[in-house]
């Protein structure tokens, strides 16, 4: 048998023995970005469909979470930067080849948009609310007039944001676990599902929850399908990708991934939602919390495990 033993004389902080340059900030940001994308997508969708009345939480109240999620996410992203004083360099150039540049610019547009969207519902949320300056009142009237345009913009940007959270990782071919085009759709669907979970948790309308959980069950189905395809793709690919898959098929991430992400984060909440639909009484916070937690763990696992996978020694 031919054994090969590598000894590298390199021992650089955060690079060796295995890459560990991205910590909790990135997966948290990916989670919050996906969550925000999910809420915005459905808010836009149901407004365009003219369901503002029936789907009140989706269109109005849940969107109040979006600016909070985006600002927290951006702050996490900022914390992750090692040369923070130069962060503005992101906005002095557009780099079409760089997913991170795409993401930075998407956030530049979607974050203010989410604030405007929420602002147009302030008067309904807080009775007696009035804007301090008359120019703001005029701006609000204008925004309300163009709400449908905003809804379309929001839906499209939400898809870009949701896909981007996955593409950010899949663009790195040096990390075999991330280097698969399924990651974009997978993160998008997962983000939409966590968004739905948050809306359902907030909603008090039985009708609204029913509509949302039906969509969510389909999304979870798609997500499971994509996860199966992810591993099929890896196992049929090159050695480094087979090794990457092994981390989840007997390796150190097996339990975390299959128990916390797949079973407790997808299958179990989907079953609870189905039970609820056929008439059983299930407190909505249980499946919602499980989906949100599963989504968060999923991103932590993917970022952590991806950095371990590599081409050389």
């Amino acid at each position: 048998m031919k054994e090969e033993l590598f000894v590298s004389g390199r021992d650089i902080p955060f690079i060796d023995p295995y890459l560990n340059i991205w910590h909790w900030q990135i997966p948290l940001y990916l989670f919050l970005g996906g969550l925000a994308a999910g809420i915005m997508f459905f808010a836009g969708l149901f407004l365009i469909m003219g369901k503002e009345k029936e789907m009140e939480t989706t269109v109005k109240w849940a969107t109040f979470l979006v600016p909070v999620a985006l600002v927290l996410g951006l702050f996490a992203l900022f914390l992750d930067l090692k040369h923070q004083l130069y962060f503005w360099r992101l906005y002095t150039t557009v780099r079409l080849e760089s997913p991170m540049s795409w993401g930075a610019w998407t956030l530049m547009f979607i974050t203010p948009l989410s604030f405007v969207w929420v602002a147009t519902y302030m008067k309904e949320a807080i009775p007696g609310w009035h804007w301090r300056f008359s120019i703001l009142e005029k701006a609000e009237a204008l925004a309300i007039k163009y709400r449908k345009v905003m809804a379309w913009l929001m839906m499209m940007l939400a898809i870009v944001l949701g896909v981007y959270t996955g593409i950010l990782l899949s663009a790195f071919n040096a990390r075999p676990l991330w280097n698969t085009s399924i990651l974009g759709p997978l993160f998008l669907v997962s983000g939409l599902s966590t968004g739905l979970a948050a809306i359902m948790w907030m909603s008090k309308s039985h009708y609204e929850r029913k509509v949302l959980s039906k969509i969510d069950i389909i999304l979870i189905g798609v997500e499971l399908f994509l996860i199966v395809h992810l591993f099929m793709g890896f196992l049929a690919a090159t050695e480094v990708q087979i090794e990457a898959a092994q981390l989840f098929l007997g390796g150190q991430f097996t339990t975390t991934f299959w128990v916390f992400v797949v079973i407790l984060g997808l299958i179990f909440p989907a079953l609870l939602e189905i039970l609820e639909l056929v008439g059983y009484k299930i407190p909505i916070w249980i499946p919602a919390l499980m989906i949100l937690f599963g989504g968060l763990v999923f991103r932590f696992v993917m970022v952590e495990a991806g950095q371990i996978t590599r081409f050389l020694y």
Partner: peptide, 16 residues
């Protein structure tokens, strides 16, 4: 002085 230290290039290098 253009680098923001985001780490993307570190992730992208197969040679670390």
């Amino acid at each position: 002085n253009e680098c923001i230290g985001c780490g993307a290039c570190i992730q992208s290098c197969p040679y670390d």
